[in-house]
């Protein structure tokens, strides 16, 4: 019994460890590990042409999105183009 409980606890810890916590527009969000910026937007169905992204304080060119692998505590601001009036 004891060993089984330990096993469960370990697998829980493993599960926790593989989730990366970042901030998106001020909200703590859990994402898969090794996710790059372009893939993150894709999983959220955000059209690349409709937004710009500020990554840890700097707006990053779209060309760099696939090269930025998101790490624990990264801060993203996804800014949408809003042109109506």
């Amino acid at each position: 019994m004891v060993s089984l409980q330990l096993f469960s606890a370990n697998s829980l810890i493993n599960k926790v460890m593989v989730i990366v916590q970042i901030k998106i527009n001020g909200k703590v969000t859990e994402i898969e590990p090794s996710l790059n910026l372009a893939s993150l937007l894709e999983t959220r169905r955000i059209k690349p042409g409709a937004v710009v992204v500020q990554y840890n304080g700097d707006i990053v060119d779209k060309g760099l999105w696939t090269k930025i692998v998101l790490q624990e505590n990264d801060e993203l601001e996804i800014l949408r183009f809003v042109g109506g009036g």
Partner: peptide, 15 residues
């Protein structure tokens, strides 16, 4: 400084 140039044609809808 935020939005470098207008979005590509059709990427963002109008009202």
């Amino acid at each position: 400084c935020m939005f470098k140039e207008p979005p590509p044609e059709g990427a963002v809808p109008s009202c």
